[in-house]
Design a protein around this nucleic acid. Structure first.
Lengths: 174, 174
DNA sequence: CCTTACTTTCAGTTTGTACTGAAAGGACCG
DNA sequence: CGGTCCTTTCAGTACAAACTGAAAGTAAGG
């Protein structure tokens, strides 16, 4: 992956934009795209050069990708630099990201809703209405959590198969 | 909803933060939270005052919420101002948002992947590897789309029931 | 150990998004 | 119609996030 082909450029740019729309830093997403397409692990300076960003920016972004668990450092014989490679299993990548975002965002929301419901003062005006709204919202997040936990308990690959099966059944039925 | 209770403030602030993490403008999310908790529709100036943002900012944000289809204007007898109210069905709200985000983000991504696969020049070095990666990614997005379409074809409320059922079954089994 | 190769940290700067307030644009009322 | 009330638009500004480059930190090699 000396220089980027038009196709690679397109993919990386698109993935960067997708990132920003879902709260992922553009550069982080671009680096991930680059590594995902790369047949071999790349050193940070190569990444910086290819994407035209500062070496230090690559360092920070790679760290974030490592925390997600979708990029890891590997060592190359006769080279002191760390080389980075992306996980190749798309399903596993999304599973990791979803699981962590759930923990960081959904769980605190459930917590907040539970706390709110507990704190609700029934004497206050409109408390009954507020309770209804909070409960409806809480119900949704609890259901999503149940679904997530349920899927998590299945071995890797099963979800994929189930989705594919569902798709086939739907086609047959229609 | 003259002044905000501590609970309402907490909910609105939290929802605003949630928004930012998922690519939704903070103010947009806060306004939605306010309307969701409000038993009656609120006029724009009231919203601006309550959240301490400019009237014009409310105008733009409300418009965005209206395009999502989760907030609508209602008229109050003897008041010339538009009053805004949020949809109260949480499931339907999320369904709307998910459907539109899929259309805006997932669909163009599938398109890009399809185009990339078509454009792939087999003579280029590493084309086979690139094809594999693109295909894996495309497979994922196609599966997600299938799942989405499948759910969409079910009547409102069914998904909710299925999730709840799944949760119960899981509890029984374990 | 000292040098060299590489990585991380961080203060300062840039950039893009969000926000404001003033002005223009409706719409209803008398 | 003219006035009032309300909404939208938009140019300018503010702000937060992202990014840079220099300096400090770390580790391998001689």
């Amino acid at each position: 992956m000396a220089e980027l082909t038009a196709l690679q450029k397109q993919y990386i740019l698109h993935w960067g934009e997708m990132g920003t729309r879902w709260g992922i830093n553009r550069t982080v997403a671009q680096i991930h795209a680059l590594l995902y397409l790369s047949p071999k692990a790349l050193p940070a300076d190569k990444i910086a050069e290819t994407l035209s960003v500062a070496r230090s920016n690559v360092s920070t972004s790679i760290r974030e990708l490592e925390t997600w668990g979708i990029v890891r450092a590997v060592h190359v014989l006769g080279d002191r630099r760390e080389h980075y490679e992306s996980m190749k299993d798309v399903w596993e990548m999304f599973r990791l990201v979803i699981e962590q975002r759930k923990r960081r965002e959904i769980d605190p929301t459930r917590e907040m809703l539970r706390r709110s419901l507990a704190d609700l003062d029934p004497k206050e005006a409109g408390a009954e209405y507020t309770r209804e709204r909070l409960q409806a919202m809480a119900g949704f997040f609890e259901a999503v959590t149940e679904l997530h936990d349920h899927m998590k308990s299945l071995p890797t690959g099963t979800v994929r198969k189930l989705l594919k099966m569902g798709a086939k059944m739907k086609r047959k039925a229609s």
